[in-house]
């Protein structure tokens, strides 16, 4: 292993890591929105919309992410919708994670003790009020472990976007290897960078889980 290669390639790799983080960051935020709305629509069974939501979750979970990326980047132009690689990547990642997140949210809401809903409703609250004031705050703590699973998977899924020419970490690694012919070194560094990014993110999520569990600690 040649250490000068590591030092020379680090700046490019780190710059590409910023792209990875950007893709993941924006997609996570959009996915959270999509996932939350989908979960609520399905729980309160909004007329007609909840069937659409169910179909969305089924299709996304039933097809490979790579296929979804190709449909959006290569397929949509055929019906007149052309997105650049980065936008395609974000749309694909958001839609994909959104479906899984919606199931996390749905499960966490259903996991809150039914007695809580009964207590809230017997005061005369609407279901919406009981969700907002009583159920959702308690469901957050329950949701975090499965949400963090989805976030971590999303960060790693950004590597798939390399196939539609976005220069994120994996793509940059492959480009450097084409010049230096040191696959083991470079791919190991890339892996190490993914590991550092995901581990730091996990520390953040652990802190969040602790914060939402305050009321359970004596």
């Amino acid at each position: 292993m040649d250490f000068t290669i590591i030092i020379d390639s680090l700046p490019s790799l780190l710059k590409a890591t910023l792209m990875t983080i950007l893709l993941a960051g924006i997609s996570i935020v959009i996915a959270l929105l999509i996932g939350f709305i989908t979960a609520i629509v399905r729980i309160i069974k909004v007329k007609f919309l909840h069937k659409v939501a169910g179909l969305y979750v089924s299709v996304i979970r039933g097809t490979p992410l790579l296929v979804q990326i190709f449909v959006i980047y290569y397929g949509l132009p055929q019906i007149g919708i052309s997105l650049d690689p980065i936008s395609s990547g974000i749309v694909a990642l958001s839609l994909n994670a959104g479906a899984y997140l919606s199931e996390s949210f749905r499960a966490s809401i259903l996991a809150v003790d039914h007695g809580q809903t009964e207590a809230a409703m017997s005061m005369g609250m609407t279901y919406a009020q009981s969700l907002k004031r009583i159920i959702l705050p308690q469901s957050l703590r329950i949701a975090i472990p499965t949400l963090s699973n989805s976030f971590i998977i999303l960060i790693k899924d950004t590597s798939l976007v390399s196939v539609i020419t976005v220069t994120e970490l994996l793509q940059m690694s492959s480009l450097i290897i084409a010049k230096t012919f040191e696959p083991l070194t470079i791919y190991l560094i890339a892996a190490a960078i993914y590991w550092v990014v995901i581990s730091s993110f996990t520390v953040l999520l652990d802190k969040m889980e602790l914060r939402t569990s305050k009321y359970l600690v004596r």
């Binding site: 207590a119 017997s122 005061m123 005369g124 009321y215």
Partner: peptide, 29 residues
């Protein structure tokens, strides 16, 4: 809902809101 606002229900298993203090539970209504 109006009917429920006029009845106070006390459950066998209390069903207090665990994420709120005692006074916040009582303030909720």
């Amino acid at each position: 809902r109006e009917l429920r606002k006029r009845t106070g229900f006390v459950f066998q298993s209390f069903n207090l809101f665990p994420h709120k203090t005692a006074i916040e539970n009582v303030m909720e209504g």
